[in-house]
Design a protein around this nucleic acid. Structure first.
Lengths: 237, 237
DNA sequence: ACAAAAGTGTTAACTCTACACCCATGT
DNA sequence: ACATGGGTGTAGAGTTAACACTTTTGT
């Protein structure tokens, strides 16, 4: 038992993971709750922060424990703390946000009774707590992020074609039929893609495979932030 | 006394308020701590979240209690939770962020022993806790925000000239000598400024006074977010 | 030969940049 | 008259948007 002079809230983390498999739908990683409250209900992976671990560490730990998903990049999203958002009492939750490709993160292990699954974004089940609000904020963030950061880095496999990248952008922005010519010109002029080969065994002209050059990206982002470059690194399509 | 089955962290809010007075420096609102730890040291305004209040409410309350500053717009910045950031034990702090004009928020009341003061950004005193880190994150956020949101809304008095707005942008972006012609064209074409009169009693051609039209801004932002407009509302100067 | 997707050339409309210049006011 | 900051015209460079076209592969 732990005793304090003033009442204290509990602190949790919740993790919103968007996954992409090359199709026309983004997916999201959810778990089925094995215990009360909301037992049997779908929810975002997450749980209580331990006293000696950093918030981000807690997010990595809970995510792996509950879904088996690991080795990803987490970004803090927002902290939800409205009184009453959790029936167990005052619970403040720091939400994290991630983008992964489903090929590299297919494993969805179950810890004990919980179950984890990828859901298409437009077929999400009813969710526990205020997790709909959290997903709403995450979706807005993704839509904003796509305009100024190269999300392909995270959502596509290591090597990809410009066609795949364009399909991804159309999926995330929920539009169709970007002009191929102009999409290519825009992406390539940023200079952050590196040719690494060609497709093999496809029933059409094999596409050039590209890889994101993280180092080039880092340098350009730094130059932009320090004001040297003004209009570089514009991911508006 | 309050007793729990598992240990719990404390949760605080800290508020980063940037102020602008028309000059070449932004200012920041700090308080002098009247109690341990870091007694006598300068720090961001902030304090413990009450059990029945929302996080944002706590930020408003602490800010007013400690500095007298109120009636401002707060935006959540980031949550800092590294173990060891506070000598009192595990303390997780949700940081908020605000922009105000100093004319409308000059009052800097002292609650009991604490003192509150505006400091020029490049003359900040040594700060308590990890408040330097928090300010660092806030400064980055401001620099990013200036590119896609009309910060003049918050940092300038209700009515202002394009000259004042340009001075503000030069201050925030830390550059000099934007081309006046092009600055004007860019700002005016967004359509979010509304003419409200002319300067009086100035020793030069009186400038047109403008006001931000919040309603127009809201509509444009909505259209952009829903994908109707693509390149509207670009605040890149 | 065909289907399928990759990839290219080109042009008219538009936007950006830079610089020079004019304007209205108080002293 | 002049200092001061407000405000405008414009041309050349650069970018965007749109469309039609060519290329390379497997079947």
């Amino acid at each position: 038992m732990y005793t304090y002079e003033y009442p204290r809230p509990s602190v949790t983390v919740d993790i919103v993971v968007f996954g992409y498999d090359g199709g026309k739908q983004l997916k999201m990683l959810l778990i089925r709750r094995g215990s009360e409250p909301f037992k049997g209900c779908w929810a975002l992976p997450g749980g209580f922060v331990d006293m000696e671990e950093d918030l981000e560490q807690a997010a990595f730990r809970e995510l792996e424990e509950e879904t088996g998903v690991k080795d990803l990049y987490l970004e803090q999203l927002f902290t939800f703390g409205k009184p009453g958002r959790d029936p167990r009492g005052r619970v403040i939750s720091v939400a994290y946000f991630s983008l992964v490709n489903l090929q590299d993160h297919p494993a969805v292990a179950a810890s004990d009774v919980d179950k984890a699954e990828w859901f298409a974004l437009d077929e999400l089940p009813p969710l526990a707590f205020d997790h709909n609000d959290i997903i709403q904020v995450a979706t807005s963030r993704l839509n904003a992020k796509v305009r100024y950061q190269p999300i392909g880095f995270e959502l596509l496999p290591e090597e990809f074609t410009l066609g795949q990248l364009q399909q991804l952008y159309e999926t995330v922005l929920n539009v169709e039929g970007f002009n191929k010519r102009n999409f290519r010109t825009r992406i390539l002029r940023t200079g952050i893609l590196e040719e690494v080969g060609r497709q093999k065994n496809v029933a059409h002209r094999p596409a050039v495979l590209y890889r994101f050059n993280q180092e080039t990206y880092r340098q350009l982002a730094e130059q932009r932030d320090s004001g040297v470059l003004r209009r570089a690194l514009d991911f508006e399509i």
